[in-house]
């Protein structure tokens, strides 16, 4: 894209982010150390990629989860929240456990989507080891198949408190 077209695009689109909804109630077990700043490591434990599109949407310009202090990071060592999508497959069982162990405390595990909560459509599949709560302790859940970006943003805001 040429420079002038990009300048025109920036000028025409202006602010894409929608107005922020009211602050949801805080999560009861929310560690106060995480107030205002939450780094998130996303783990796809065996998802169909439907939830990934919605997670991408939550951090896109329209829902803009970053304005509430939530940010996706590249390493579990930098993270406070492990966001897990999909059923836990046999191959992802150990990587998921290790990712949560590699996250420094205080940490939370957020299970996003019906598959992560109770295996959803893939219950009883031959490659499925179980739901996320069968493998690691889950602190927060977001229902939906797939959940809307606004629901994911709301769950994150319950942690950041912004």
């Amino acid at each position: 894209m040429s420079l002038t077209r990009l300048v025109g695009l920036i000028r025409r689109s202006g602010r894409i982010a929608e107005p922020a909804p009211a602050i949801p109630d805080g999560h009861p077990g929310r560690p106060t150390a995480l107030a205002g700043s939450v780094q998130i490591r996303h783990v796809d434990a065996g998802s169909c990629n439907g939830c990934e599109i919605e997670v991408g949407g939550a951090f896109g310009p329209v829902y803009d989860a970053e304005r509430y202090g939530a940010r996706l990071v590249a390493s579990p060592r930098h993270a406070d929240v492990v966001l897990v999508t999909g059923v836990v497959t046999h191959n992802m069982l150990e990587p998921l456990r290790r990712t949560v162990e590699a996250t420094p405390r205080p940490r939370l595990v957020l299970a996003v989507g019906d598959c992560a909560r109770n295996c959803g459509a893939f219950k009883g599949g031959y490659g499925v080891a179980g739901a996320v709560h069968d493998v690691v302790d889950v602190d927060l859940e977001v229902p939906g198949c797939p959940p809307e970006p606004s629901a994911i943003v709301e769950a994150l805001r319950r942690v950041t408190g912004r």
Partner: peptide
């Protein structure tokens, strides 16, 4: 950068919030 991308942005104080939080976490 956030404003030019059409996002609202986390505010100029966000790096300070990140620092405060990181200082309170156990180093692994």
């Amino acid at each position: 950068r956030a404003r030019l991308e059409g996002r609202a942005g986390a505010g100029v104080l966000q790096p300070w919030r990140d620092l405060r939080k990181l200082l309170g976490k156990e180093p692994l």
